[in-house]
Write a protein that binds this DNA or RNA. Structure first.
Lengths: 241, 241
DNA sequence: GCAAAAGTGTTAGGATTACACCCATGT
DNA sequence: ACATGGGTGTAATCCTAACACTTTTGC
């Protein structure tokens, strides 16, 4: 394949015609597995360089819909907890020449050296339901522990950091349901909160506060297949509105 | 003046060349005066229609800088507390035909019927320092009590509502200095907080909490020229970072 | 002097934190 | 039996909310 029929060229031509210039979406897709908060990253074809998934907004498409599209294409998931959290609008967000060189795209061919404003969204998804799927510019899509993220392309390390702090602020005082399956145990929820907060929590106080919130209901089953005492399963009460 | 030399035409031509398409900034400029939270609005030429101030982003300009520019041009102020709070990106945010008719612009002449994504910023400014200045499409710029805002052009009533709730959330638990002069009295600060929260506060508890925060220092002067007992002036301690 | 606002301390209640033991299960 | 994690109550502390009187000043 030479630079002239590189799939990026057709893609950027289509984007150029159909999408809004200078504007993009970056998605920080959070999952939770084995007591680790994870983020979905993409490895670019023929490189060892990683980035967040992203995309562009069609000229008549709602921004939220575009963000959903981005996340859906990488995860296969449709019903999403999706939250706009920041616009990254600096005139020089990163070293463009360096970054495009690292992607190994024949970017000279596509007139896409303009500056980009990016709208950051984060998604909270159920890890086990995700089918990580690379796009046509990338050859690998997989989960990374947020604590072990390598240096990313563009300013994506910064975007992840802002997403994480937004997530922490937003859920400072409410239980997070979206990263777990609909039925879960209290200790599982506690591990999730501990991971996001980055500090251990007292099991008794956690349990008490949770019950006081009145949003949980205990199911009749317990979590099977574990060693030791089988914990009860709970779910969030359906909100009847 | 006919439609062909309407200043809007030249403006939109310039914007079209120099600025990013489909993207704009709307500014919710908050002030505080006579125990009322106020917002700066513009009345469009030859109409009784009001809107928020707004503007466009130059192709190589940081979004924050563009927002500063918008606010500076309407207020004359340069050092601003400015906060990005939401992106309004719905595909159909308002009835375009209706809105453009209400502006009485010869908008058929300017090819500007495209959809717009708007980045919302709010600014907290010192009321007395503002020189409200209309732009070339508007003939009046003045303060409105947030509680008395008329039906605005575009979806600007919605934007104000979101700005206000962001402001309340953001300052749920910290004193707001930016809407008052640098030296102020505790009762003045209390009125401000009461106005933003929409509920009365207990003076003793307010005072205690404020002092406990350790961020205030009492000046030697008192507020002169008031009837009754002269209150002490305070200021926020300069943060030595 | 009197009306109006400023300035301040104490107490009660609610929420948060700290802390320890028994239970169920798989090995 | 024992190792491992689950499940739960009580007491101390801190924070928040309620509440009233004296001081100052202009009129």
């Amino acid at each position: 394949m030479n630079a002239y029929n590189h799939p990026a060229i057709q893609y950027y031509q289509d984007v150029s015609e159909q999408c809004i210039h200078y504007l993009s979406i970056d998605g920080v897709i959070f999952g939770f597995h084995e007591n680790q908060l994870k983020v979905l990253l993409l490895r670019w074809k023929g490189t060892t360089e990683w980035s967040l998934p992203g995309g562009f907004i069609r000229k008549t498409e709602s921004v939220d819909v575009a963000a959903q599209r981005v996340v859906r294409e990488r995860t296969g998931l449709d019903e999403l907890y999706l939250q706009q959290f920041h616009v990254f609008g600096e005139a020089e967000r990163y070293d463009q020449a360096d970054t495009w060189a690292r992607t190994k795209l024949p970017i000279q061919q596509v007139n896409w050296s303009e500056r980009t404003i990016s709208i950051g969204y984060y998604a909270l998804v159920e890890y086990s339901k995700v089918v990580p799927t690379p796009d046509f510019l990338t050859e690998e899509c997989c989960w990374w522990n947020v604590d072990d993220i390598p240096p990313l392309l563009f300013d994506h390390n910064h975007i992840v950091a802002v997403a994480l702090s937004s997530l922490r602020r937003q859920f400072a005082d409410q239980p997070i349901s979206h990263l777990l399956p609909s039925a879960f145990t209290v200790p599982e929820l506690q591990r999730l909160h501990e991971t996001i907060l980055g500090q251990p929590l007292d099991a008794r106080n956690f349990y008490k506060k949770l019950m006081a919130s009145g949003t949980l209901e205990r199911l009749s089953e317990r979590r099977a297949g574990t060693p030791h005492k089988a914990p009860y399963l709970y779910r969030f009460k359906p909100t009847d509105i």
